[in-house]
Every structure is written in C-alpha cells, then in structure tokens.
Amino acid sequence: MPHFVMVIDLNTCVGCNACMAACAMENQTPVWDKKKWRTYVHDKEIGIGSDVNRRFFPRLCNHCDNPPCMTVCPTGATYKKPNGIVMVNQELCMGCGACAMACPYHARIPITNDDVQIGQAFYGSDYHRTCASMDKCSFCDHLVEQGQKPACVTTCVGSARLFGDLEDANDPVAQMVASGVARPLMPHIGTKPNVYYVDDLKWRS
C-alpha cells in the first residue's frame, strides 16, 4: 500500500500561485472568497536593510498520520484512507468547525450554503458539491486514484511541489524525506505530517 507524501522545495517556488489556481479549478473551491483556498502561497520578506530575501511558502493540509482534525470530528466525516490521504465526507460533515480548531496548519475552510449556491452558478452543471461542510485539500485523491498527481504538483512551473510514495525506497521524494533534507512543519505537536519542506534560507548568501 502506498503512503503518499508531498515535498515542497522552497528554493524553487517562484510564487506564481499557479498551484492555487489549479487547485481551485480542479476542486471547485470558492475562489470568490479570498480566505477559502485549499492551498495558499504565503509571500513574506525575511531580513533587514538591503539584505532581504523574499520567501514564497506554500501551505496545505499536511495529511497527518495522527490527524487531530480526525480525532475531534464527532460524526466521522473526516477519515484517513489506507494510502495516508485524509478526506472529508461532505454528506456526513455537520460543519461544527472542531476540525478547524484542532488543525495546527490552518488547513480547514468552511463551505457555507451561500458558497454552494454561488458555486452552482460559477461552476455550472459540473459542480460536484451538494451541501455545506468543512473542506480541505484531498491531495486530489480522485486524480491519484487514476495514477496521476495532484493538480498543484502537475502545474508547478518550478517543480517546487513533488509528490511521491514514502513506501517506495526508489522514489526520489521518499529519498529526500529519508535523507532529512525535507522536513515537516511543527513535528513537536505529534501530528506526524506528510508534507515536507526543503529549506531555502541556508542556501542563500
């Protein structure tokens, strides 16, 4: 059974935000609300005076092996597939928001009834959402099931987003994780995240 992970190389992310657009179109997210992206690229400056670096920092659900959002979910709407992907069953989700409160990565977004109505008009007859619920990145599970990669990975011009199988020792992504070059965010919380980052600052003068 594969165990899917994503590695994000901060050295090659150019901040074009194509990943956000690709994700939004592939997953029909509420693009009319700037706070409701499944994936988001922070644009920050690090440094002082003339010694300033610009850092683009993509964020998304970390598909934790110990996901607190799944633990607190009272209906079982949040569940983890054997391949490691954390999913939300929108029909089961009552939208209490406990998952958003539990998530340390700010990766949960509320889809309201208004969003569903606007979505039906915006995306037309292809719109797949039937009810309001909490939402999150699914690693484009529907594409992964077909042997493809998530939309954000496919569209990334700098190959900053890499997708692979942790169980495959020959997978370059798994090797980056095993080598320690790619590291997770806030591992001390105990969530055992499956999104890893390659540091950029140490390579900059």
């Binding site: 209906t75 929108q90 089961l92 209490c96 509320p110 889809i111 009810c131 619920s133």
Partner: peptide
C-alpha cells in the same frame, strides 16, 4: 447556539 452555527444542520442526526 451550537446548532445555529452548524454549516450542514441536517447532518446533526449522525451525532
């Protein structure tokens, strides 16, 4: 109070 803020109220039956 909690019920009024649920996004998908009919799913409360599960809980």
């Amino acid at each position: 109070m909690l019920f009024g803020h649920l996004l998908h109220k009919s799913a409360v039956f599960h809980v």
